[in-house]
């Protein structure tokens, strides 16, 4: 695939802000609009830009693409774990820590609470899905062309 140098540079440059925005949305989601889902899609869009710019083969060499399945299902597993782990303490599923009325530990503006972990799982899955699905498509297109 032929793309101009400009496109490639822009794509590479845009990847970082996309990821940063995604991260911000992910972490701040509990305070403001947005959550893991949005973050995942935005990050994925950043990745997808690489496909447009560099083509399928090049993009596939990037780390996150190769691990896409692990990221996706790892994320799902993480969310599941957040949901199910309270059972081991005899609590209902989805009992979040800290509980209602308890003090939240702040790390800057970031709140350290389990829903955030849950959201990270969502993020990973959505990211994995979007990138994975497009990657599968790209691969199919590639196969058809060769």
């Amino acid at each position: 695939m032929k793309t101009s140098v400009m496109t490639r540079v822009v794509a590479r440059v845009l990847l970082v802000p996309a990821l940063v925005v995604a991260l911000a949305i992910l972490i701040k989601g509990y305070a403001d609009t947005g959550d893991g889902f949005n973050a995942g899609v935005i990050a994925a869009l950043g990745m997808l830009l690489q496909y447009v710019a560099f083509g399928y083969e090049e993009a596939e060499r990037m780390m996150p693409v190769r691990l896409v399945a692990v990221i996706a299902f790892g994320g799902l597993l993480l969310s599941l774990a957040v949901a199910l782990l309270p059972l081991f303490w005899g609590l209902a599923i989805f009992t979040h820590v800290p509980g209602p009325g308890e003090e939240v530990i702040h790390l800057g503006t970031v709140e350290l609470i389990t829903p955030v972990v849950f959201d990270i799982g969502v993020f990973m899955l959505v990211f994995g899905f979007a990138v994975g699905a497009i990657d599968l498509l790209a691969r199919a297109i590639h196969r058809r062309e060769t």
């Binding site: 509990y30 959550d35 969310s79 829903p115």
Partner: peptide, 25 residues
């Protein structure tokens, strides 16, 4: 009480987290 400012997010991640888990599944 769920330490959230965005009620929708609180519903998604806490009150009705099971739905979200299902959704991503």
């Amino acid at each position: 009480e769920a330490h959230a400012k965005d009620v929708v997010t609180a519903i998604l991640a806490d009150f009705r987290g099971l739905d979200t888990l299902g959704e991503i599944t």
